[in-house]
Design a protein around this nucleic acid. Sequence first.
DNA 1: TCGCTTTACTTGCACGACGCAACTTACGTG
DNA 2: CACGTAAGTTGCGTCGTGCAAGTAAAGCGA
Lengths: 392, 392
Amino acid sequence: MLEARNPARPAWTAATGTALRVAQEVLLHGPLSRAELARRFDLTPGTLTRITKALMDEGVLTDAGAAGAASAAGASAVVDEARLGRPSQPLDVVGDGLEFVGVKVTGDHAYAVRTTVRAEVLRSADADLPSADPAAVSDVVADLVTRLGDGAARVGVSVGGHVTATAVRHGPFLDWNEVPFGALLAERLGRAPVLSNDVVAITEATHWFGEARGRDRFALVTIGAGTGLGLVTHGRIVMDDDVGLGLVGHLPLDPFGPVCHLGHRGCADAVLTTSALTTAASVALGRALTHGEVLALAGAGDPAARRVVEDAARVLGKLVALVANITMPQLVVIGGEGAPLMDVAGQVVRDAVAADRDPRAATVAITVQEGGLAAWARGAAVIAIQDFVGAR
Amino acid sequence: MLEARNPARPAWTAATGTALRVAQEVLLHGPLSRAELARRFDLTPGTLTRITKALMDEGVLTDAGAAGAASAAGASAVVDEARLGRPSQPLDVVGDGLEFVGVKVTGDHAYAVRTTVRAEVLRSADADLPSADPAAVSDVVADLVTRLGDGAARVGVSVGGHVTATAVRHGPFLDWNEVPFGALLAERLGRAPVLSNDVVAITEATHWFGEARGRDRFALVTIGAGTGLGLVTHGRIVMDDDVGLGLVGHLPLDPFGPVCHLGHRGCADAVLTTSALTTAASVALGRALTHGEVLALAGAGDPAARRVVEDAARVLGKLVALVANITMPQLVVIGGEGAPLMDVAGQVVRDAVAADRDPRAATVAITVQEGGLAAWARGAAVIAIQDFVGAR
DNA sequence: TCGCTTTACTTGCACGACGCAACTTACGTG
DNA sequence: CACGTAAGTTGCGTCGTGCAAGTAAAGCGA
């Protein structure tokens, strides 16, 4: 009996050990030839022939350019520099029929995306939450997943707070405690979703397919409804029961700033969140303003808005400097809905970072994350992707 | 021709892969039986028989209790809980004739220790530096090493600043730049020493044989002539070109504190170093005081000294809270010559840490490192040990 | 006292991952 | 059109490890 080649769905679960790591390397770093993979893993060409043959039989890898390859035609990530000798034959991950859904749940909204295996967003959908009731939230999430079509290989869902693989232990934005969110969703979806803390999810997305792709050590600072920090060292995210508590939100940044609900003066949550910014600007300008309006006014030169925005930028700089001085990241990514602050006052942030650093230290590399709310949902999709390819 | 068994010096270099990791596990976690090792590495007993047999042939391991075993008799780290069945047969690292020397060089002093393979201090020696001239410093270090006896398997030397494997790129306490310290010492010692940054060295010692033995993630905060931070995540120290610059020294901790030489107000170096403490106390009490005297007076209840010490303790608490909120360590170790501050005002520190934390977060576990200056020299010895056992 | 149970350790056999080295393939160049 | 170069393939041997049967050394109960 002949063995079926290229089964309907790539059999990532069959791969283990080196083969799994090879497949993940191709997933993360575009089409790669056997020779290149042999160099990266310090293996002989022969071993790579065997490993890739098995992965191709399992439907995980194909020749790049072949039907089903995950990379868009012509968007080859690897430029073949070699002129002499036999041309290399790049391999790519099979992306055909392999899609994922990620949903980010906030305190009043749910945002969903459907992506490729490389977390490229294909389409999205979102909805307000009628209430914070777990059943109602689960209904909304299930509806969004359905609207994005069936056949997704995995569904990832991210929530702020202390999240386990099956439940939300504590979700401050929804005021949830010990909610069996995984089971509630499984009932409605007919399958178990992959749950994750939202900051962990967006950090993994940044690490695998985003601004910090392949980095060994970086920090993601998110500013938005809250303040978050994702830390990757030695190529892996730092995990702890305390992630999701928003501990960075309590870092004292401005000795003359307002007091937060825990009594901390000038802590990150009290001065850096979008609501802190809009409140300060609305008071200064004497009218209610949205976050986007504040940034637009500041960009247009309005002195009051500019002052408020630059104050926030200086505080963000202090936060980045703290993180950089303690963890020495190769890169700091600024993400979250509040990230556009960097577009208006990026230089103020960079100057503030430099002011709190030793001049002999390396300049902190700072990048802004694109995508706004979609980036959060994409994070949830990446958690689903990681689960599918055996990386969790 | 018969192969020599139990050679004069254990052949750690012969071990690779799993065998090396097994030997290192025994080195770090005391005598361990084959069965216990099999459980820890998820290997079958058969594999462990083979691995340990090879290691015993190479003279790396012996039966615990046998002559040459590194553990002091009766000081077995593993209590045999089992009552039933054949008793396990603990294995230990061969420590016979295996000693190391570590030297810590400060701005005006050198401190040396000779240790066992488990970094237990056998004897020590120290000397003032006549000048900061590299040749003169090398002479002093070489003399200390000689005074501690010959036959050491490796010599480790640690210095503050940016230190490579062969040179001191920048040493602020000695005002050194691009000093080929390794070569200077090799001339005098007849062998190349193992060079390291001092904070890295003491962090490795804390990780391998100290308060954070076997921890996956911890932070070591040192206070003394300067302020230092060693960070271990995922079981490995975080390394960067910027370690050794003393970046934590610039963290703003006290908005009303004095200004440091870089213009940072109330940064760690300006308020936490031993000199900052003695200066503040001497001003308050109107007479010159040593660091020990200040702590003794505070301990005895002198109100001025107590105030100065508690102010420093609160600032240390802020520093620990910053580190804990950003890196979520399982443990924070307070080390360095200034660590006795914890004995006098430990509760003040702990209260200050708690004040800057989310009450839902885990209480930060804090331990004080013993040893004072010897701990630094022991760190240098551990770097030498790690080099010898193939862990660097 | 003598099995019986339990756990530790050893040993022969088999398999799989990988290095080695010879070979084939596919390109450009003189 | 032979030659050089680099990519990829294939057969063989080695090494690390699991498996499973066997041996060793203790306590316990009849």
